[in-house]
Each structure stands twice: as C-alpha cells, then as structure tokens.
C-alpha cells in the first residue's frame, strides 16, 4: 500500500546521509506534488554497499516548480521538474 498518492504535496527530507544516495541535493528540503507511485525497489543505499537483502522501499515521481527550486528561475512560472524520490526521504507537506 503506497504511503503517498498522486496529487499529494510532500517535502523532500534532507537525511544528511553519507555514501551513495540517489536524491539530488537540489531537491532536498523542497515541496513538490506526487505524480505517480513507481513501485517498490531495493534501496540503492543498501545495494551500493552490497546489501541486497534489505527492505524494499517505495519510489515516487514528484514534481516541483522550477521557481521553487532555483532562486534565479523567474521568467517561466509554469515550468516544472520531475524526479524520483524514495519514500523514506518524504514527509507530508501541508499548505
């Protein structure tokens, strides 16, 4: 049962993790909208250190306004960016 659903607003956490993570720095701390649930996958953070027996984690495509991500992106307010975020890096965002 995915934790988050399409249309929901979420915030990307900054877990301050060392090592291999697939959440780009530029989206951490930002609020976006869930586009779709992609399924569950083995956590790349575990796979990167050879642990293929860990828990699977949900993955979602999340959409952000470019004007939210970059302080110098102002001319095209409808432009967006979509990227994949793992469930443990997400929390609900309100408002």
């Amino acid at each position: 049962m995915p934790l988050f659903h399409a249309g929901e607003r979420i915030r990307v956490l900054d877990l301050g993790k060392a090592g291999h993570v697939r959440i780009p720095a530029y989206v951490r701390g930002h609020v976006g909208t869930v586009v779709q649930f992609c399924g569950v996958f083995l956590n790349p953070e575990d796979l990167a250190i050879g642990n293929a027996g860990g828990r699977v984690v949900g993955c979602y495509r999340v959409e952000f306004l470019q004007t939210d991500l970059w302080t110098d992106y102002s001319e095209y307010p409808d432009d967006t960016l979509v990227t994949e975020i793992y469930e443990h890096w997400m929390e609900p965002a309100h408002g």
Partner: peptide
C-alpha cells in the same frame, strides 16, 4: 514558446 511549459525529468533512480 512562453505558452508551452517545459518539464524536465531527472532520471535519478529506477525509471
């Protein structure tokens, strides 16, 4: 054009 929005997809995980 300005009327068309640009949507970038950063292929960072499994898709």
């Amino acid at each position: 054009p300005e009327a068309v929005r640009v949507r970038v997809h950063d292929s960072n995980a499994d898709m």
